[in-house]
Design a protein around this nucleic acid. Structure first.
Length: 380
DNA sequence: TCTGGGGTCCTAGGACCC
DNA sequence: TCTGGGGTCCTAGGACCC
């Protein structure tokens, strides 16, 4: 989707149309923290782009329309779009809230050529949601992804099977998916600036300097990518983090935040039917240096209490000499409920009771709102 | 200019095992 | 007194993506 969050806002609020719309953190007249999540094409004319610090955006465009993100709204629109995509094939792999890969190999007899399907999808998405999408049609995921970015907004790019090389040749290496600033700099030191130049480098040389990334890039530079489109896969981690309005060394505030994040992460785990065996604490100091500490637990957990019990000792390992900018709580090594036998511990009876309680609380909150019932530990 | 929040994958060292 | 080779798992950090 093109400028997804900003386009949804312009659609929902007609007075924002044709205006420079910036979705992201509160700019607070230039003193705001955070970044631009998305912006309209009108805003891009001022040099604004996503991930730009919101304070910088304010300097570039003080008269812009600044809007807080409404994530649940975007998720709603996203579901509508993904449902449309699934009319054309069941092999739909969402890549993010506003992008997906489709393998239409099996749909061609029924729905027409890939190119026709792509056009139909574009117009159906536009008809149903009023939003424009950019589409890339190609023999594999990597080429399709590049193609979809090439003519944004409202783009439509087909990569012919027999001219993949011609398509790639002139593109800069930064277009390659997985090549960021660091890898680009390293490649430039090898004298590589375009995909054509990348393809000319001996494979061994690439592997030598970039390891498995090098091997991967070597194939991509030839247009080779055999990764399948996978319709539904489980998340590998679920996490929750927050940046304070002002850096803090207030222990009580930090501990309350840890409890809140633990509860929120646990709710998300339960909603998706997971338990976690690995718990991670993330701290970012005022100087922006970031540290993580993780700990594996023998029997997977799903309540905020259990998560906080693991996180708190990790927190004690850190110094508070410098103020804290961000705290995060993460979970990993996820298993499905009932996937593996529970390791029965000494406290399993009381733990099972706690888990039952949490599931009941989930239902109440679902019905009466998130803040209808809260724990003392979640209150500041 | 001061840098969100949610993810994925890779690397490298160390513990541990046979 | 010095110390192989192969493997797995754990942890911390970093690059990258939207």
């Amino acid at each position: 989707m093109d400028a997804f969050y900003a386009s949804v806002e312009q659609r929902d609020h007609p007075e924002l149309r044709d205006q420079p719309v910036i979705v992201g953190a509160d700019p607070r007249k230039g003193a705001g923290r955070g970044v631009v999540a998305a912006c309209s094409y009108e805003a891009r004319k001022f040099g604004i782009h996503s991930a730009l610090p919101i304070s910088r955006a304010w300097k570039l465009c003080p008269h812009g329309c600044y809007v807080r993100p409404r994530l649940s709204r975007y998720q709603e629109v996203s579901r509508t779009i993904m449902d449309i995509l699934r009319h054309y094939t069941d092999l739909v792999e969402p890549l993010s809230i506003d992008e997906a890969f489709l393998d239409v190999t099996g749909s061609i007899t029924l729905k027409g050529s890939a190119e026709k399907i792509a056009r139909d999808i574009k117009s159906e998405v536009r008809g149903v949601t009023g939003l424009t999408a950019s589409v890339g049609v190609a023999p594999n995921k990597f080429l399709a992804k590049i193609a979809s970015d090439l003519e944004k907004p409202d783009g439509f790019v087909v990569v012919p099977d027999d001219n993949v090389e011609g398509f790639l040749e002139r593109l800069p290496i930064s277009r390659l998916w997985g090549v960021g600033p660091k890898t680009e700099a390293r490649l430039r030191r090898l004298g590589v600036g375009t995909i054509r130049e990348l393809a000319a480098i001996p494979r061994e040389r690439l592997i030598q300097t970039l390891g498995s990334t090098g091997e991967h890039l070597w194939h991509l530079s030839r247009g080779e990518d055999d990764r399948p489109v996978v319709a539904d896969w489980d998340p590998k981690s679920i996490s929750c983090e927050t940046t304070f309005d002002e850096d803090t060394d207030d222990r009580d505030r930090l501990l309350t935040t840890i409890h809140n994040l633990s509860e929120e992460v646990a709710r998300r785990l339960r909603r998706q039917g997971f338990r976690a065996s690995r718990i991670t604490l993330k701290l970012r100091y005022a100087s922006f240096t970031t540290h993580t500490r993780q700990s594996s637990v023998p029997s997977p957990v799903e309540t905020g209490q259990d998560i906080a019990r693991v996180v708190l000792p990790l927190f004690e390992e850190f110094s508070l000499e410098e103020k804290i900018r961000l705290i995060g709580v993460g979970t990993g090594k996820l298993s499905r409920d009932g996937d593996e036998p529970e390791q029965l511990g000494l406290f399993s009876d009381s733990r099972r009771r706690d888990e039952k309680l949490e599931h009941t609380l989930d239902k109440i909150r679902e019905k009466y709102g998130r803040t209808s019932l809260q724990k003392g530990s979640e209150l500041s």
